[in-house]
């Protein structure tokens, strides 16, 4: 138990970030008009594609004879890239529809 508390205090910076980000996330989109719900969701979807960074690290750390890690990492990078690229392009296309009419 004590060691777990220890872990918390080691990571206190991260925990602060988590708490502040929760408030910020809520604050930032608080007044979104319902017309933008779909594009906003899609944009947020693209942003959590940042998980790709983790996939790249897994892949990059894997020893070249560790097949399991290589395969997992490769798959993760492909899927993460799909999330990022697809997410941003789809959002851009959706918003294109709005802009044209203005």
């Amino acid at each position: 138990m004590e060691s777990f508390l220890n872990w918390i205090s080691v990571h206190q910076q991260m925990i602060y970030i988590v708490i502040l980000m929760i408030f910020l996330g809520i604050e930032v989109i608080g007044h979104v008009p319902s017309v933008l719900h779909t594009p906003l969701m899609s944009g947020a979807n693209a942003i959590h594609g940042v998980v790709l960074v983790g996939a790249i690290i897994v892949m990059g750390k894997a020893e070249s004879d560790n097949w399991l890690a290589l395969i997992l990492g490769f798959l993760a990078v492909v899927l993460g890239t799909l999330n990022v690229v697809g997410g941003f392009v789809v959002t851009d296309r959706m918003l294109e529809m709005f802009k044209k009419k203005k």
Binding site: V18, M21, G25, I26, I29, G30, L40, A44
Partner: peptide
């Protein structure tokens, strides 16, 4: 961390 939590919070509100 920021990207993930930001989306987690904003997504929940959305």
């Amino acid at each position: 961390l920021t990207g993930g939590i930001l989306v987690g919070a904003a997504g929940t509100l959305l």
